[in-house]
Amino acid sequence: MEVQEPPVYVIVPGKCYRRDSDATHTPMFHQVEGLAVDEDITLADLKGVLLEFARAIFGREREIRLRSSYFPFTEPSVEVDVSCFACGGSGTLADGSRDPLCKGSGWIEILGAGMVDPNLYGFVADKGYDPERVQGFAFGMGIERIAMLRHGVPDLRMFFDNDLRFLEQFG
């Protein structure tokens, strides 16, 4: 947005860093973030885009749900759950036991999103971003986290061990 006038529609994969290391945290990981800013982008559009995404990754039968949340850079903010692909959203496996993947809830949290906070446009006002005129959504998700869910990988650190016995499973 610092270099391009509206509208802007981008999808940005990249490395992120955080000071943490355990089975579900690595000091480096990858995020895919998306941003769509135009004159008429709505929260309902975000819902539609993310439903398409969830179905492309997790299967055509998937549904999503938005839960209200908080991020300093979006308003409104939502967390997005996808209906569990292990139990089909029922929370219960075929043998009647509680689904450990979604912990019986039928839903799995996959990403955070929201409508771009109007304050953000103030930083790029010189490029024509006027919060009275433009609005849009943004979302961000952890690639390894999605891959862990999709493929059942138990430990995030395995993505960075570079063990061929792991890599070749997804080649």
């Binding site: 529609y9 769509a36 008429d40 309902a44 559009d45 439903l51 749900r65 938005l66 209200s68 939502v78």
Partner: peptide
């Protein structure tokens, strides 16, 4: 607007795609 949206129900939002 966020307050209105969350209590009205995010599950009641329609599902649309950007018109571009």
């Amino acid at each position: 607007i966020e307050e209105v949206g969350r209590i009205h129900g995010l599950d009641r939002l329609p599902i649309t795609l950007p018109e571009r």
